[in-house]
Design a protein around this nucleic acid. Structure first.
Lengths: 258, 258
DNA sequence: TCAAATTCAAACAAATTCGATCACATTCTA
DNA sequence: TAGAATGTGATCGAATTTGTTTGAATTTGA
């Protein structure tokens, strides 16, 4: 059998990776009929191009696929219709020319996907993934600002840099995703650094809108962001039980059931 | 067998390529009954017309065998050998426990892929893509800081937020990718905002190392970042011509040929 | 924590491939 | 027909790719 061109061999590595999610140096070497050193060199080359990520013993696919790849956005669209409905209702509040802020979260991510067509929009976010959505859409009238900071496991940029950045900015409207909300503890999140960053988001916005599906009601995370009464509006789903709706109506200026 | 006209022979190469996806110089030479040198000349001519893409050992139809990523990776794969060597040499300067900075660029990206295994490393970057490499590798001993700012087409975060963030940070070692370097104009980049951000990178670092392959020599971008003499070291490839090497040796403390 | 097994990459060596250069043959042109 | 232009083959040093060795680094299991 005639030996393979180097490019074809690397292509086969990528094919194997897409099929199996992860590959081992040893198995690739025997499958491709080359030495382990050659496989390692191929993995280095592919990793340098961002096509895969090396791990000890082999390689895996990129943990966070870019939004133009099928999978990420697709997976999200399959997700609960409630999040989509909330995102649509939230997008309805945004007018061309506004400046908005989005913290990191799945609901705000769904909202971002709804906003790529809005003209003259300025968006401040601490989520690289949300920034990527706008960047991929490449709307020349939009201005996307990433706060900076260190990244948490949930794709949020937090810490001193994020706080410093948000301290320099002011937006018309903030959409804040949260992990839990109760009467006693208000809006909460499990990560202390994210809580701190979210407080900075609130300070930076003239109006605050919480976006949270009905499953968040009754949940308390580690850290309080703000009490219920400290925000202007909440957008949630109609499946939230009546008692909770009543409580929220009394605590907030505006309750929107998407 | 009567000899073939050059045009007809090249057509047969293209036919073979369409059928097989890839062709080798050696097999084409025997199939067509000509020397390998002649096949190479044909491949060069066809490559110059854009009809195929030469690779080591033969040629393929598609430029990027991966088809995964746009522009960014394509540019990298052209210089892969030299960029890889530069990245390796640069990684050799990094010790566990250090704090480093990487600006946005293909060479620094290749370097990032080499650094995911280094322990207790703090990395400051203005490239979401570089941050993503480290994040995907998920080394728990590493601390990744993204500067924030607005994103340029070349994946760099720039502007007031980036400058503000870099003003608050100090790192041991900076690796800076550039677009051009000449005696008269020093290190340059085509984007004014990136030049400004790169200057902030330089101020934030105790030592500065430029990483640039030999094709950058003699190129002048729109904006100067710094004169040659203002950085501590340059890592480039051995294919840089001798005269340029001599000039650089006189302007810089350290010139490393990877 | 230590020790064994595994994995990694640098260094060197071998094989292959590339392209500059020169020599030769054929074709074109004055 | 002489001379130039072009295409082709051959040679040789440089560059690239690949494999092997070896020691360091990492993971794993106690």
């Amino acid at each position: 059998m005639t030996e393979m061109l180097a490019g074809a061999r690397q292509q086969r590595i990528l094919d194997a990776l897409r099929e199996r999610e992860q590959v081992r140096v040893t198995s690739l070497a025997s499958e491709l009929g080359v030495s382990e050193m050659t496989v390692r060199r191929d993995l280095n080359a592919l990793a340098a191009r961002g096509a895969l990520v090396k791990v000890h013993g082999g390689a895996t696919l990129d943990a966070a696929p870019t939004s133009n790849e099928p999978g990420f956005t697709h997976k999200l669209s399959l997700e609960s219709g409630e999040k989509q409905a909330i995102a649509r209702a939230a997008a309805g509040l945004i007018k061309p020319g506004m400046s908005i802020a989005l913290n990191s979260g799945t609901t705000t991510f769904a909202l971002a996907a709804q906003c790529t067509g809005i003209k003259d929009l300025t968006v401040v976010t601490n989520s690289p993934r949300i920034a990527e959505v706008f960047h991929a859409a490449a709307n020349p009238t939009q201005n996307i600002i990433l706060t900076g900071g260190t990244r948490t496991v949930s794709d949020a940029l937090v810490g001193p840099l994020a706080l410093s950045a948000l301290g320099q900015l002011h937006v018309d409207l903030l959409f804040l995703g949260v992990h839990g909300m109760t009467v006693e503890d208000g809006f909460t999140t499990p990560n202390m650094l994210e809580a701190q960053t979210n407080q900075a988001f609130i300070k930076a916005a003239a109006r605050q809108v919480i976006v949270a599906d009905h499953t968040k009601w009754g949940v308390t995370g580690l850290c309080q962001i703000v009490p219920l009464s400290q925000v202007d509006a909440l957008i949630t789903g109609p499946r939230l039980d009546a008692e909770a709706q009543e409580i929220l109506r009394q605590s907030l200026d505006t309750l929107i059931l998407a």
